[in-house]
Simulated assay, not measured.
Amino acid sequence: MKLFSTCTIGAVKLQNRIVMAPMTRSRATNNLPNSLMVEYYSQRSGAGLIITEGTSPSPNGLGYARIPGAFSAEQTAGWKQIADAVHRGGARIFMQLMHCGRVGNNLNLPAGAELVAPSAITLANKIWTDSQGEQPYDQPREMTPKDIEQAIAEYALAAKNAVAAGLDGVEVHGANGYLINQFLDPGSNQRRDAYGGDAARRNRFALDVAAAVIAEIGADRVGIRLSPYGVFNEMSGDYDGIAEQYVALAAAAGGLGLAYLHLVDHSAMGAPKPEPATVQAICQAFRAAGGAAVILSGGYDAARAEADLQSGAADLIAFGRPFIANPDLVARLQSGKELAVPDQATFYSPGEAGYTDYPGMP
């Protein structure tokens, strides 16, 4: 099967075409990568490529409890232990750079940090804080031009730190309602300057971040994740002009020579289904402009993954939740063994339960 064949994306050769999708797991106490995370990632190093959980490039981006960062020397040292362990297992590893933007509560931020976003629009509902339980989302401050310049520089520094820690590259998280997606979406971006208004200006922050990261570590070590039509974290979904916007964004990203475009489809979790023709157009635009590879993710099993690889729709396939309860997922897919089901109650809880204690195949 092509799913289990080797391939090369950018500067990295992979042992198979199975990607472990980025998944927030909230085990980074004090926002530091730790020995428990080393065990978790090393258990799953049968994948061709592991994309880490969302990792903030800035203290301002730590909107959730216990997510890791990549902006301090101590964090870099922690990530080095993870990268070394994953490499010993045979996988390659990219760090997903995720600035939460408006998605957060001030109780989850370190001293001196603040919630910032394209516009001062507050999310509805509540978010978990370790100190006071469920709390309303706090209102973000609208970013000034200087804030935007600083955030772009923070992404570049985090990419530099990731490579210094021995990771093979980074994924710029432009999906799922976080900071870059907040700039892309007309519902969360009400600006009327160079970073807001029409689609081209809403695309600018994503492209400026990608360009800054490329300048730091090289295009062949950089990917980008997008979620067109996504509604997670109160994104608008199917708004007027979205297809044209994302095709243009993909073409511009491809023109930067990125190692991959990672498209996520959340319809298996109840979100709207992206229009297949638009997904195809986005991927074609990325490749035609010079982008290297396409990763598709969202509700895949082995048969569907193989079909999309054989058709050329994708070069790699990302699996998310199956990797939680099946640390040996690649071996299980190869053998056709039944997959274990993850315990959703422990997705984001601290400690090893539901994290490193899932057994491999008997």
Rank of each mutant, 00 (worst) to 15 (best):
N30K: 12
E306C: 10
R92E: 04
A302G: 07
R44L: 09
L333F: 04
A194G: 13
S58D: 07
L316T: 05
P33G: 03
N31Q: 12
A281W: 06
A268Y: 09
D130W: 02
Y348C: 14
D265R: 01
S58R: 00
I18Q: 04
I224N: 01
D240V: 14
R202H: 11
G360E: 09
L107F: 09
L256S: 06
P228N: 05
T76I: 05
E352P: 14
G290F: 02
A285L: 11
D130N: 10
Q15N: 10
G90K: 00
P33W: 00
I67S: 07
N233S: 12
A159V: 09
L261G: 06
A325G: 09
L49A: 05
Q96S: 10
R17W: 04
M235P: 01
T346M: 11
P145A: 03
N30G: 10
D185M: 05
N189Q: 07
D198H: 11
K337R: 14
V86L: 00
R27E: 01
A285T: 15
G177W: 00
N181Q: 14
V86T: 07
P228F: 01
L258R: 06
L207E: 13
Q139E: 12
F323H: 02
R141E: 13
F4A: 08
S227R: 11
G104L: 02
D240F: 05
A206M: 15
A303R: 10
R191L: 05
P59R: 09
S311N: 12
P274Y: 00
R225G: 05
R201P: 06
G312K: 05
G257Y: 01
A156S: 14
L157K: 14
F347W: 12
A28Q: 14
L184R: 08
I224H: 05
E244K: 08
P140C: 04
K160T: 15
A91S: 15
H266P: 08
P22W: 02
A85I: 04
D265S: 05
N108S: 09
A219G: 07
S227D: 12
L258V: 14
E39M: 03
R102M: 03
R192I: 09
I67H: 02
P186W: 01
G112S: 13
D130Y: 05
I50G: 02
A200F: 07
E244R: 08
A353K: 14
S236E: 12
G320H: 04
R202S: 11
I50S: 01
G298E: 02
L179Q: 12
K126Y: 12
A253L: 12
N125M: 12
Q310H: 10
G69S: 11
S56M: 11
G46H: 05
V294R: 02
D265Q: 03
S188D: 05
F94E: 12
V209K: 00
L157N: 13
R92P: 00
Q132N: 14
A164E: 11
A251W: 01
V222F: 02
S311C: 14
R304T: 14
A206K: 02
R102N: 07
Q96R: 04
S119H: 09
Q190Y: 01
P322D: 01
